[in-house]
Amino acid sequence: MIYDLTHRTLYHYAEPARFARHLLHLLPRAREGQRVLDARLEIAPLPEKRFDEVDYFGNKLTTIALIAPHETLEITLRATIAREAPEEAPHAATLAAVREAAAFAEFTLPTALTEADAAISDFASAATANESDAFGAGLALMGAINRSFTYRPGVTSVATTAPAALARQEGVCQDYAHVMLAALRALGLPCRYVSGYLRSGDATRGAEQSHAWVSLWVGPEGGWVDFDPTNDRVAGADHATLAWGRDFEDVSPVRGVIRGGGRHRPVVEVAMLPAMGS
């Protein structure tokens, strides 16, 4: 399936921003099952400086600097992405084998947002008590989180930790993902936070906006498998990956330091639609 993707972020500043420097994780990366046929960022006003790099996790990282005073900032990603769904369930290694694999040690360690407390550890153990392989554990945890949580925008923030989200049992896709990450890591399984998009129009949560889910390493043969706990489904052809890291902090789509600007709140619009003829 080929998608046309548009992601527009608009800032209206209450007073002119006199200087701004932003880091953008807004250009999608290629990965197994995903080809980026075209991707470009349109930025208004045009930044005085722009640098494009690849970050530590292999994501595309764009740095922009706006020196002239500006009252709005609009960043639009336009991309064409070819996405293929995995053909069959992956061959997953046992939980013990996955735990012992050292290659992805970095993704087994907790972060500030995904530090597990006793409640998360208990939740993880209970949800996966009957599972023997990593894929099964992923499915079980995903389902348990989805059933426990109520999707409710506005009650959490980008700084909400996994224990806080689990305690509330409500939140948005980022909170679902952080709880699942914390639980998987409490089990010693390597997993990563994935930011991206969900096909528009379906009866899913998280479409028409930035989305987030979890990727779990299920063993050397199965590799990385993506789980979307917000929608209780294995991510496939309807999900387009933007970037991944250990948690949201590694891949926040837009982060920056601005001087002036006053109060502002971003307006985000996302559309991921099948390309004409796809």
Binding site: S252, V254, R255, R259, G261, P266, V268
Partner: peptide, 14 residues
């Protein structure tokens, strides 16, 4: 110069 402020946006829906 005046102080700067930091923001992180765009991940979670508001």
């Amino acid at each position: 110069p005046p102080a700067s402020r930091q923001h992180r946006d765009g991940a979670a829906p508001p």
